[in-house]
Design a binder for these strands. Sequence first.
DNA 1: GTGAGATGAGAATGATATTCTCACCGACAT
DNA 2: ATGTCGGTGAGAATATCATTCTCATCTCAC
Lengths: 241, 241
Amino acid sequence: MRSSVGEAGVLPLKWSIVLHVTAVPEEQPAWRQRAVERSTRAAKLRAEQRVQRFLDAAQELIAEKRTTDFTVQEVVDRSKQSLRSFYQHFDGKHELLLALFEDALSKSAAEIRETAGSESDPLQALRLAVEMLFEQSLSNPGVERPLFSDFALQLLVKHPSQVATAHLPLLTVFTELVEQAEDAGAIPAGKPRRQASILMQTVMFVAQGNGVPAGSHAAAVSAEEVWQFCLGGLSGVPVRN
Amino acid sequence: MRSSVGEAGVLPLKWSIVLHVTAVPEEQPAWRQRAVERSTRAAKLRAEQRVQRFLDAAQELIAEKRTTDFTVQEVVDRSKQSLRSFYQHFDGKHELLLALFEDALSKSAAEIRETAGSESDPLQALRLAVEMLFEQSLSNPGVERPLFSDFALQLLVKHPSQVATAHLPLLTVFTELVEQAEDAGAIPAGKPRRQASILMQTVMFVAQGNGVPAGSHAAAVSAEEVWQFCLGGLSGVPVRN
DNA sequence: GTGAGATGAGAATGATATTCTCACCGACAT
DNA sequence: ATGTCGGTGAGAATATCATTCTCATCTCAC
């Protein structure tokens, strides 16, 4: 229905955007529905292309400036469209960023799923997944995903539920991996969804707080260490308590 | 040298602020130094009081509005001083927030240290500490620390090294607790500082992502669960790998 | 061809942070 | 006593953005 930054159009998309793009009253008779539908389809396509151009422009800017501090004007200029048009399609900069964010996480989830899927040992698969997530969540390497590090946190504060939604694809993947590991007896059975949730938080944010030279304190943690920690966490405490 | 929101004046302070307050050339003869010192001491005190009034005002506003979205003007008005003066003492709103943030974390660390210190069993002490940190990092309860949830993340993005500095007091406390637990043989020996670091990140951010009703997905994680996870992480994986 | 909705160009608004101007004051060295 | 100087208050002036508005134009389905 809506879009996707690159081409793999999946994810659940943003409501407001949908409302803008398809303003079709639901209570009309079916024939009218179809009529409007026919006469609108093209417009819808055009709209999606425009939206896409905005998204692409924003993506470029983020990649270049390594931050989400670009101005709406810049996006507009680069996409060779107009402010008028921008606000016609997005509720605001926030919606734009959210769309990109969801998209990035969704893609990341897909990558991880694929890579991990090619590993037969469930525990190794999980390990791979953790390491991938860790790398992608680092702030410094300046991958094409400053979204993870930058906007993510801002969002985490103002609209936590949207973050939850955006995390869903990743959470799903990790939940599956945890379940498989448990089924295989590699780790004791538990509540996979919650375990996956804690796991993700741990990996993502430990990576986060890592992109700091921080000369003095704050020992840089490696993917390996995080994995060990998480594995222990999932495996439970050996004896007491 | 600098300040503290309430009264317990501890923490390492902010450089820029110090530079503003004491602009004393170091290469003067000693007598002159002392002279200047004498003639400056009073001014320094006045300055600190002013700074303190800004900090107090900001703290009040945060408590009231439950957010860091207050305007500098509001702080100025409430503290009955002037914009001019504000910028004389702070590099900007950012510095003000940073000061409050450091202060909050510092106090939190003190509380945790004290509470945990009254527990003789090292493992229980660590557990207590984890639970306290978890509670204090929750977003919803609207405690008097929207700093943890709100500004903290913004900061995490733009000035990670300052976050590291701010985290230091907490990191120190947790490192001690981990060391004690290891010394007591409650958990296997490791690298206490790094372990404490991962531990903190996990606890704080899992708590973070928790303040969400999020009707559908995202199972709310409890302090207990986090503790179990972290304990496992610290204890290491029982057998394989 | 016509009319409704979409667009472009760019001005206007609104909210804030930050800087600047200028008059004043109070401590202090001489 | 007095002149200097840094700090201050009051508030105007700037600067930066996001967001909205105006109006002329364009496009497409009919």
